[in-house]
Design a protein around this nucleic acid. Sequence first.
DNA 1: TCGAACAGACCAACTAGTCGGTCTCGTCAT
DNA 2: ATGACGAGACCGACTAGTTGGTCTGTTCGA
Lengths: 205, 205
Amino acid sequence: MISDLREKIIQSALLQFEEKGFHGVSVNEIVTSVGTSKGGFYHHFSAKDELLFVIHDIFISYVLEKATIAYQTYESPTKRLQLIIKEFVSVFDRYKPHISVFYQESIYLRPEYETLIKDKRDQFKRIVTDTIMEGKECKEFRQELSPDITGMAILGMVNWTYKWYKQSGTKTIEEIGDEFVDLILHSVLKVESLSSAIYQDLLIK
Amino acid sequence: MISDLREKIIQSALLQFEEKGFHGVSVNEIVTSVGTSKGGFYHHFSAKDELLFVIHDIFISYVLEKATIAYQTYESPTKRLQLIIKEFVSVFDRYKPHISVFYQESIYLRPEYETLIKDKRDQFKRIVTDTIMEGKECKEFRQELSPDITGMAILGMVNWTYKWYKQSGTKTIEEIGDEFVDLILHSVLKVESLSSAIYQDLLIK
DNA sequence: TCGAACAGACCAACTAGTCGGTCTCGTCAT
DNA sequence: ATGACGAGACCGACTAGTTGGTCTGTTCGA
């Protein structure tokens, strides 16, 4: 059984960053919490913010991959949107700390790291807005929707979950995801598309 | 014309915190940027994080007041919800930096300050969830909604705006607010309530 | 003249990062 | 088999600089 120090550092730092913020945790605290030393740390990371970058990248790469797959799985924008949301929400159980750090501490990434992350984040955004545009084009979605605002509204609604979701809560992340899908489909679908969505079990009840 | 140093410090620190984060700006940077000194700063604030608290409090107090008034203005949950959202969104033009700091830097508040802020934030949340519960009771809203999740979904959608809204963008904050109201009412209202909402000009088109 | 409003030198604590050194273990010539 | 060798993993004292905060003044209006 090898004990991969690098992984241990990432895991421990992650939880501490989530709780106390990037600048609220010193390198010394990190290394003592995993039982290593400054030397051990800087053997694996060039700087403290490389660690921050790694945490960002793990999360956004995973989300982008899931969204890409969801997009390719269906042709119908309604089903695409539904799967993208469900996949994204389900990430919270596994990556809650990553997400918190991602949305709270990204200002502390140095520019070169920041652009790398921004690229992937923008790709993810595009998948959502493209789906909304296609939904309008094929007449499943309401024509008065603006893809940008609607896209950011959806992302905001889902992203915000990191501020309040607790795994110990009464609802599972899947139940929350179902309610989000229900709310979002009601807000974007035409009234006449709603009934067929109900028929396909995409909505609650 | 009196030059209120305290106000100048708050304004300057606010913009710097928004850009570089609470720990990304030192007290020295703050005082030199407003042309004063350590002595001047600590004459007005007991500690750096009191300044952070003041910024938090200005914003949340304002929002809470607006939401309370909006709640009291109407009897109908639909119109209440619509006004609460519109009022909240319109805050972004005036308080964008406060909001960014509020949602990014609150971990750095010491516990005593944190509870003060949390109280007001919870009051605000309650206004939203209560409105949703009342909307269900008077049969304007869909019965399958869960007030908690729906409330957090709405708050998330609106709050997230601070991550992407730019005053220089093509849409005004009022237009964005109208689109949010449109999306939210479509997602919470019963289909038969939608038509009367359109009649009352609450929805787009 | 007295106190509020500020100035700025100063301090102890802490910061990220460095660097010479040690320890472990696989490789390879003997 | 064994000992020499070397490379990567890791250690921790150290440094140079920064941090929030204090303290002794000074200025200045009432």
